[in-house]
Amino acid sequence: MNGFDSLSLWIVITGMAVGSFALRFAFIGFMGGRPMPAWLMRHLRYTAVAILPALVTPLVVWPSPTGGEISLPHLAVAALTFAVGYLTRNVLWALLSGVSGFLVLFLLG
Protein backbone atom coordinates (compact mmCIF):
# COMPACT_ATOMS: atom_id res chain seq x y z
CA MET A 1 0.00 0.00 0.00
CA ASN A 2 2.63 2.57 -1.02
CA GLY A 3 4.42 2.64 2.34
CA PHE A 4 1.35 3.32 4.52
CA ASP A 5 0.54 0.96 7.32
CA SER A 6 -3.04 0.26 8.37
CA LEU A 7 -2.88 2.49 11.43
CA SER A 8 -1.79 5.54 9.43
CA LEU A 9 -4.53 4.93 6.89
CA TRP A 10 -7.22 4.70 9.57
CA ILE A 11 -5.91 7.84 11.28
CA VAL A 12 -6.23 9.76 8.00
CA ILE A 13 -9.71 8.36 7.32
CA THR A 14 -10.87 9.20 10.85
CA GLY A 15 -9.38 12.69 10.67
CA MET A 16 -11.12 13.40 7.37
CA ALA A 17 -14.43 12.09 8.74
CA VAL A 18 -14.17 14.32 11.82
CA GLY A 19 -13.23 17.33 9.68
CA SER A 20 -16.11 16.73 7.29
CA PHE A 21 -18.56 16.36 10.18
CA ALA A 22 -17.25 19.53 11.85
CA LEU A 23 -17.63 21.54 8.66
CA ARG A 24 -21.23 20.46 8.19
CA PHE A 25 -22.06 20.85 11.87
CA ALA A 26 -20.84 24.44 11.76
CA PHE A 27 -23.77 25.32 9.50
CA ILE A 28 -26.42 22.82 10.56
CA GLY A 29 -25.74 22.64 14.30
CA PHE A 30 -24.94 26.24 15.03
CA MET A 31 -27.25 27.91 12.50
CA GLY A 32 -30.00 25.26 12.29
CA GLY A 33 -32.72 27.08 14.20
CA ARG A 34 -31.81 30.65 13.26
CA PRO A 35 -32.21 32.55 10.01
CA MET A 36 -28.94 33.21 8.22
CA PRO A 37 -27.85 36.79 7.65
CA ALA A 38 -28.80 38.32 4.31
CA TRP A 39 -25.15 38.86 3.29
CA LEU A 40 -24.38 35.14 3.82
CA MET A 41 -27.43 34.01 1.86
CA ARG A 42 -26.44 36.34 -0.98
CA HIS A 43 -23.00 34.70 -1.18
CA LEU A 44 -24.32 31.13 -0.81
CA ARG A 45 -26.52 31.62 -3.89
CA TYR A 46 -23.39 31.51 -6.06
CA THR A 47 -21.98 28.28 -4.62
CA ALA A 48 -23.54 25.95 -7.21
CA VAL A 49 -22.65 28.33 -10.03
CA ALA A 50 -18.99 28.23 -8.96
CA ILE A 51 -18.74 24.49 -8.28
CA LEU A 52 -19.97 23.19 -11.65
CA PRO A 53 -17.40 25.08 -13.77
CA ALA A 54 -14.67 24.16 -11.28
CA LEU A 55 -15.48 20.48 -11.79
CA VAL A 56 -15.83 20.64 -15.58
CA THR A 57 -12.99 22.99 -16.62
CA PRO A 58 -10.11 20.57 -15.95
CA LEU A 59 -11.94 17.89 -17.95
CA VAL A 60 -12.22 20.26 -20.92
CA VAL A 61 -8.75 21.80 -20.78
CA TRP A 62 -6.82 18.61 -19.91
CA PRO A 63 -9.04 15.69 -21.04
CA SER A 64 -7.92 12.24 -19.92
CA PRO A 65 -8.70 10.41 -23.21
CA THR A 66 -6.10 12.54 -25.01
CA GLY A 67 -3.46 12.26 -22.32
CA GLY A 68 -3.90 15.87 -21.25
CA GLU A 69 -3.55 17.35 -24.74
CA ILE A 70 -6.08 19.94 -25.88
CA SER A 71 -8.94 18.28 -27.76
CA LEU A 72 -11.02 20.11 -30.35
CA PRO A 73 -14.16 17.97 -29.74
CA HIS A 74 -14.01 18.73 -26.00
CA LEU A 75 -13.63 22.45 -26.65
CA ALA A 76 -16.41 22.42 -29.26
CA VAL A 77 -18.89 20.70 -26.94
CA ALA A 78 -17.88 23.04 -24.09
CA ALA A 79 -18.52 26.06 -26.34
CA LEU A 80 -21.89 24.61 -27.39
CA THR A 81 -22.85 24.01 -23.76
CA PHE A 82 -21.77 27.51 -22.76
CA ALA A 83 -23.72 29.08 -25.64
CA VAL A 84 -26.90 27.14 -24.86
CA GLY A 85 -26.61 27.99 -21.17
CA TYR A 86 -26.01 31.66 -21.91
CA LEU A 87 -28.86 31.95 -24.40
CA THR A 88 -31.47 29.92 -22.52
CA ARG A 89 -30.38 30.77 -18.95
CA ASN A 90 -31.30 27.16 -18.12
CA VAL A 91 -28.78 24.77 -16.58
CA LEU A 92 -30.76 21.69 -17.59
CA TRP A 93 -30.78 22.67 -21.28
CA ALA A 94 -27.06 23.43 -21.12
CA LEU A 95 -26.29 20.03 -19.59
CA LEU A 96 -28.50 18.25 -22.11
CA SER A 97 -26.84 20.06 -25.00
CA GLY A 98 -23.41 19.02 -23.72
CA VAL A 99 -24.43 15.39 -23.40
CA SER A 100 -26.09 15.50 -26.81
CA GLY A 101 -22.99 17.06 -28.36
CA PHE A 102 -20.76 14.28 -27.07
CA LEU A 103 -23.31 11.66 -28.12
CA VAL A 104 -23.39 13.05 -31.69
CA LEU A 105 -19.58 13.13 -31.83
CA PHE A 106 -19.45 9.55 -30.53
CA LEU A 107 -21.97 8.31 -33.09
CA LEU A 108 -20.16 10.08 -35.93
CA GLY A 109 -17.00 8.30 -34.99
Rank of each mutant, 00 (worst) to 15 (best):
V49A: 11
L87T: 12
L95P: 01
P63S: 05
E69G: 05
L7W: 06
F102E: 07
L52Y: 11
G109F: 08
G101W: 09
L55P: 00
V104I: 15
A83D: 03
V84Y: 04
G29R: 05
P37D: 10
S71P: 01
G67K: 05
A83E: 03
G101T: 07
G67S: 08
G98T: 08
V104Y: 04
F102A: 01
Y86K: 11
L96Y: 09
R45V: 11
G98V: 10
Y86N: 03
T14W: 03
P53C: 13
L87R: 15
S8A: 15
M1G: 08
L9T: 08
Y46M: 12
P35C: 00
W62S: 04
L80E: 06
A26I: 09
S64K: 12
L40F: 13
G101R: 02
M36E: 07
L107P: 00
L80H: 06
S64W: 15
V56W: 12
R42G: 00
A78R: 03
G109N: 05
L72P: 00
L92W: 15
P58N: 09
L55S: 06
A38V: 12
A50E: 05
M41Y: 02
A76T: 12
W62F: 15
V77T: 09
M1W: 02
V84L: 04
A38F: 10
